[in-house]
């Protein structure tokens, strides 16, 4: 009996071992591809929020003092001829159903938002989900970084107002919160 259960245990161990090796092998093959993809995706997204950015350096360590509660997760500075021309922030504000990850680009010369792009979100399909659509992100383009952005439900009248997505005010506000946090940091650190 004892001998038997030992045998069974050994059998399971062998199967698990083979399984582990198999998975490790596939991981070996796919991991470089996945990493590569993450990098290209990131660069492409950076290009989208700051068109024509050539030299981008990650300066998160310099600007973010390791504050875990901050919703700012990355600061990437765009250089033109060795002087900072713009900043691309990665922010993770809390949405309706977990965190929303988005990029916000700012131009130092014009003090304007160049563009924003939603990378990841798990909001309600058909409602909050629309935050990643261009019709919504376009509404942030060219807004001044000097004033706090405000989400409104009717056609905006002031320059700092942004029209919410229909029936997804919470998500819209979350996106605006993220952009505002980046905006504040941008004004404090890059505009003198």
């Amino acid at each position: 009996m004892r001998n038997n259960s030992l045998k069974l245990g050994l059998f399971l161990l062998i199967i698990a071992g083979i399984a582990g090796l198999g998975i490790a092998y596939v991981n070996e093959i796919t991991n470089p591809l996945i990493e590569q993809q993450l990098i290209t995706n990131k660069l492409n997204s950076f290009q989208e929020v700051y068109v024509g950015a050539e030299k981008i350096t990650d300066e998160s360590e310099k600007y973010l003092d390791g504050d875990a509660d901050s919703i700012l997760t990355e600061v990437n500075v765009v250089y033109e001829k060795n002087t900072p021309a713009g900043v691309i922030y990665t922010v993770e504000p809390s949405g309706y159903n977990g965190k929303i990850q988005l990029l916000a680009g700012f131009d130092i010369a014009t003090k304007q938002i160049t563009a924003i792009k939603v990378l990841n979100l798990s909001e309600t399909p058909g409602l909050g989900d629309n935050a990643k659509q261009s019709f919504f992100t376009e509404r942030f383009k060219g807004k001044s970084a000097e004033k706090n952005l405000e989400i409104v439900k009717k056609e905006p009248v002031e320059g700092n107002q942004v029209l919410a997505i229909t029936s997804a005010t919470i998500t819209s506000k979350a996106v605006a919160n993220g952009v505002n946090a980046a905006r504040q940091h941008f004004m404090d650190n890059f505009i003198k």
């Binding site: 698990a16 399984a19 582990g20 991981n27 991991n31």
Partner: peptide, 12 residues
Amino acid sequence: GIEYLQTIAFIL
């Protein structure tokens, strides 16, 4: 560093 074994480890 074996996060890729997550599924199998969790189900076990």
